[in-house]
Structure formats: structure tokens, C-alpha cells
Design a protein around this nucleic acid. Sequence first.
DNA 1: GCAAAAGTGTTGGAAATACACCCATGT
DNA 2: ACATGGGTGTATTTCCAACACTTTTGC
Lengths: 245, 245
Amino acid sequence: MVADNALTTRQKNIKTILKQLESDGIIGISVDCVIFGFDENELKVLLIKSDLEKFRDKWSLLGDLVNNHEDLREAAYRILKERTGLNDVYLEQVKAFGEANRHPAARVVTIAYCSLINIQHHQLKIHDNELHWHKVSTLKEMAFDHRKILSLCYEWLQKRIQEHPLGFSLLPKTFSLRELQNLYEAILDVKLDRRNFRKKFFTMGLLEDTGEFEANVPHRPGKLYRFNYEKYQKKERKKWFGIDF
Amino acid sequence: MVADNALTTRQKNIKTILKQLESDGIIGISVDCVIFGFDENELKVLLIKSDLEKFRDKWSLLGDLVNNHEDLREAAYRILKERTGLNDVYLEQVKAFGEANRHPAARVVTIAYCSLINIQHHQLKIHDNELHWHKVSTLKEMAFDHRKILSLCYEWLQKRIQEHPLGFSLLPKTFSLRELQNLYEAILDVKLDRRNFRKKFFTMGLLEDTGEFEANVPHRPGKLYRFNYEKYQKKERKKWFGIDF
DNA sequence: GCAAAAGTGTTGGAAATACACCCATGT
DNA sequence: ACATGGGTGTATTTCCAACACTTTTGC
């Protein structure tokens, strides 16, 4: 495939570019994508084996140097597209990491982006044996400061998912309430009461009944719902939540 | 003063450096500090007149290019120190801004930091007639994309101040509950019930009674309190707040 | 008919809100 | 004495947490 060749070439170029940056005393800038997926009731993250000697066999986030006339967000989208083939995905900037010595080859400031995708929707593209969905819960060491970046993005996600409707990006377009609850329980690492969970989402009034039901389940099939983003957008957000810390 | 000469030299250098970056097709990295203060019951921000022709007479945030072996956070601290003389201030990264055309002279990605300081503590340093505390509420146009950066940092502050004890950085070490309430009301642009506000903070158990009282007020003097950061640190944070969006 | 998860309401306690009067100080 | 904001308690409402049984489907 064209994309694959492009990637390989790119990998070789990066080392050259970094060497150049370092010898010129210039700060490089990259984006790193923390791509989350949800599968088998576990939160997963898309990783690749590092191509640096120093980090041989360590996992690394998907990232790249930012091109000269490319917005940061564009660069993140480019990486997502290259690696997952997906276009319209949830993507948000989380934080910049700029410690002077975070990259062994040169000074590189990286902007971390967090992305949520539905794992089923691109499954086809994982023949690439470097690319791997890894459980977040069992991850140990990683290349660079990527463990720190991932941890921070995970905490960000835990908080964010309680205040904004982004969890749905990890699920199929229609989903059962059980799936939704499993998602929240997995990400937040809590047990939730089923009845209260349903009540909460129903009273929000943002779930649309599709009229469809689960299929091929060895028990009573659940109703399938869809999240109504338009209705959510129109809702006025309150900026006063109450002081609590 | 030495610092002032250093600054002037630096300003001249920046233009040269930017020109160089642009001609070499290199992305520059800067930090911009949104420095908030609280005075006369208004939220203020520390600004300077832009030194670019294109933005003549427009207000600009305080920022600078990041030095080669300097962490991002260090760079932000350096700017704070240079401009306010203050050392131990509240400082937090908010977001990176990296649109390809956000700076007219060259491609510059900037990392926005938000800082909260007590306006009284450095008042002496504002002879510099460029430097100016500006009401946040009445700010219109600004240089670069600084209006956008400021707005975002202000929204960040509104949210953050409800969940974390950073408002105290805007007040003297000891303060009355009235001052604290004024602060919250000004930043959040809401009216709060005095008795409920007090109840909230007292039941949190993080305010220490200093035994002191306000002086020179034309009414019954209020007690002065101090925020107990140690106690706050020890408190275990809950990661489950409840889904609400 | 049995296993497995879907679906459904009520109740008690905690927290948030609304609200009004007396007190201490400076002038 | 009066003007100004400091300081306090209670009743009401709203929100959250806990909890158990019946229903539907596949096997």
C-alpha cells in the first residue's frame, strides 16, 4: 500500500531530521496521539514498537514531527488517518510536554492529543504487526516519557467522560445501556448501580430509542440507543457547578 | 536596572530570530503567560503593548521564545520573574496554540500558561509604562490570537476555581470571607448567598482562623482566615463525581 | 424450565437553597 | 445614633444512593 511505503520513508527521515535539529540547536515540535478504544470491556490504547535503539521493544505512542505549514490539529488528524484509516474521529488536545531532555536524540516539544475511536470500525487495518491494541490497565514501561503522557491522558479521560458526552465515540453508533455502563465502569474503575445509571441517562433526555434490539445474545436482548448530539449542542451549559474541592 | 536592559536587548533579538526561523522554514516555540490579578473587586490581567508594527497599540500577553535547554515551565517562570519580580507563584499550563498562521513574522507555536498572583505583592514594579493591569471584562481586540488565548484561559479559570483551591493565590495570605466571596462572584459573574458561601467553606474545614481582624474598615471588622494547603494535600481526592452533561 | 441479563419504583438521607435578624465598629 | 457590613440557624427542596422482583430471550 502507498500509505505503508510513505510511513517507512518517513521513519527514516525522522532520524535525519532530528540529527539536523540537534546539531543546529533547534527545538523540534511533534504531536503524539493517545488513541483509545474499547473492546471486551477493557479500555485499550493503540501503540507501536519504538524504532529507537535506546527504547528497543518498548511501546510508543503514535506521533510525528509537525510539518511546516500544518496546524497542530491537522498533524494529529494526519497521524490518525495514516494509522487507523479513520477520518471523523473525536480528537482533543490534552497537554504539551516540553522537558528539555525528554527525547534522547534532540530537543523536541510534543503536544499530546487524545482520540477516541470505535475499535470495530477499523479492525481491518491491524495486519501491520507493529501496530497493537494494548490494555491500558496492564501497561508498564514505555518509550520516551510516553508512560507519563498516557497516564495523564487517561486521567484526563476519566474526568472528561463524566462531564462531556465523548464516551459514545468508543461505542458503535447504536448501543445498549449495558454496553454504556460497562464503558463507564471500565474507564472509571467503579461499580455503578444499574437502575440509577439508567435513570441518570434517561432523565438527561439525550438518548434516542432506535426501536432496534441487540441480536445473538444468550439472554433477553436490550434496546439499542443512539446519542443525540444536536440536542446536546442546543442545551445551555451552566457555568456554575458549586465550589467543591 | 539590569533586568530592563536585558529585556530591551531581548526584544530586538526576537525579531532577528523570528526572521531567521522563517527563512529557514523552522517552527519557533514560545510561551505566553496569562497573569491574572484581583483588585478593586475586578479580575485583571497583566498586559503589554505589542512591539510589532502590525499590532501597534494592541495589547499583548507577556511571552517569549523558549530557550534551547529550558523546560517550558521554566520559560514561563522566567517571564513571570522578569515582569513581576515574583518567584513562587501559581502557574499552570493551559493549552498549546499552533495554527500555522497565528504569528505574522514566522511560524510560532505557543504554549499558554495561566498564572495567579496577588496584585499588591509586586505593585512597585509597574513604573514600566508599557506594563499594565487591564480589566478582563472590558478587553476588546488584542495582538496575535491573544484574545482567543485569554478567553480560553479565563474559561479555564472559571472552571478550575470551583474544583481546586487556587483562588487564594489572588488574595493576600490572610483574607476575610467577604473578600473571598467577592473573588468568586467576580470571576464567575454570579451572585452568591453569603450564609451558604460561608457554610460551604467552613464545612470544607480548610480555612484556618488567624485570630486577626480586618483593620480600618468603616464597619464591624471581619475575621481573617488563611488557607491550609497541607491539610488540602492530605485530603484524598474522589475520582467519581457523577455523570452530568 | 433454566440461566442470564433486561427492565422497572420507592424510600431515606444528604446536600443545596432560600431566607431575616441581631451585632460590632467607625463616623 | 446611625450606617455599614459581619455573623448566625432553620425549614424546604432537590438530588443521590440503596435496594428486589418480574420479564424476555436462547439454550
